[in-house]
Design a protein around this nucleic acid. Structure first.
Lengths: 250, 250
DNA sequence: TAGTGGTCTAGACCACGCA
DNA sequence: GCGTGGTCTAGACCACTAC
């Protein structure tokens, strides 16, 4: 039998972090409010600077706070955009104003900040799906309200799109899917694979992510009615900016 | 015009972290390998202990490494389970061995570790969808290979399920959906909302998450053919353990 | 200019693992 | 018992923000 041991006290930095987190999650501290700074925590709890920093770093790494140099540490807000996957069924009587999570439903306009188009050799997984490594690639960054929210890399089989508008910056009305349709390869079936992880450094830079924000990674494969894969699109989303929604029936 | 300034050198701890990350992502260091420890980094780079710790903490907070007390810091593995949302279309000729990401396709068995069933007052968002705050709640924890991977909380309208097997531990053959069907409320339509964020402390404990692992949160609403919501299920997934997949057509 | 967070040093004691 | 990571102190200098 194990003698129930005295439950060990959490370390000081953790107790301080717990208190601040409580204040944030309970709503006592709201979006944009200033947290007590390092000096305030040192004085209030009689601790060293490094310990105060450690407490704040917990909240920062949890995505609940953002440090601003020379100013303070602030509570962080979460106001996501809603992205619909399959929405065939969501237009009926159900699914109107009955979402679980709050989100900005106003259709805020996307801006495409950056576009790079290139002919490349695809990595193995993409090559396997597209039937070969020769691809045209379209890399974009999307922003909403001046804020970068998504990186997107689309791969197309080179043999399919060579010489079409898909390999130029302006893909024309209807975008790449309209062009694929004109080529007799209209996308009909989609598969989306979704993961979440902490961002790599270049993603942190390109999406301007504060510490403690994961990214959602979506790998989407578009196939024609015949089942031929015509596009592989990898999207990196700022997780704090998105709610994904999928509607389907059993 | 801005005179292009000399690009500032990143701090030491960051350069060390970058080097180690590079070694991990390039495959030089593989799953389970031991990283150089604090003492090794101090000696190799001539830095103080706190600086070495800071470098390692970067990788730990990125989910790329796990510290083991008294032993070392180790590269972390990612071997996810595949969870299918809508898979109506995935059984055809397409979608066979053509996934983008690796995953354990062997159908490893789930274990239900913990079950709590209770009558509760639902929070606002759930009450709004279910048409009232009176709910029966089933809380479960799922494990795969002895490892907790998912927390799940299902809410059912109390008026609908009162006195049925849904309010008892053993829901009988076919589970709760079979019971709902017998009651004339078979689920037919599903909406899944997905977010990702860093875990709350109780989630870290219950899922035994190392630092740097986000969670995926899925809120699923099940509706009958008439559009009546009969279940709201909130799932918390260890993001390192899952790939979600959705199949649909345009 | 005063206050903030960012980086770094040089120590200390502890709990834990592994041999 | 030794090496590991976990916690903590008491300083230092810097860059940046706000006033």
């Amino acid at each position: 039998m194990q003698q129930s041991p005295v439950p060990p006290e959490p370390p000081i930095y953790r107790r301080i972090a717990d208190g601040l987190r409580e204040a944030i999650l309970s709503g006592d501290l709201r979006d944009g409010d200033r947290l007590p700074g390092e000096n305030a925590l040192m004085a209030r709890h009689g601790i060293a600077r490094a310990t105060a920093r450690q407490a704040l770093s917990v909240l920062i790494n949890e995505g609940l706070a953002v440090p601003k140099r020379g100013s303070g540490v602030y509570v962080r807000q979460f106001r996501p955009i809603r992205r619909h996957g399959s929405r065939r069924l969501s237009r009926g009587q159900w699914g109107r104003g009955e979402a679980i999570w709050d989100s900005d439903t106003r259709g805020r306009p996307y801006t495409v900040d950056e576009v790079y188009i290139d002919r490349e050799t695809a990595e193995d997984a993409v090559a396997r799906v597209l039937g070969g490594p020769d691809v045209w690639v379209r890399r974009r960054r999307y922003s909403v309200d001046e804020r970068p929210v998504q990186l997107s890399v689309s791969h197309f089989p080179a043999a399919l799109v060579e010489g079409t508008a898909i390999t130029s910056e302006d893909t024309g009305p209807g975008g790449v899917y309209a062009r694929l349709g004109e080529l007799g390869h209209a996308p009909a079936h989609f598969t989306e694979e979704i993961r979440a992880r902490m961002p790599h450094p270049h993603e942190t830079v390109q999406l301007d992510l504060p510490a403690g924000t994961p990214v959602i990674v979506i790998a989407r494969v578009a196939r024609t009615a015949d089942g031929v894969a015509v596009e592989v699109n990898e999207m990196i989303l700022d997780a704090a900016s998105y709610v994904l929604q999928y509607d389907f029936d059993s």
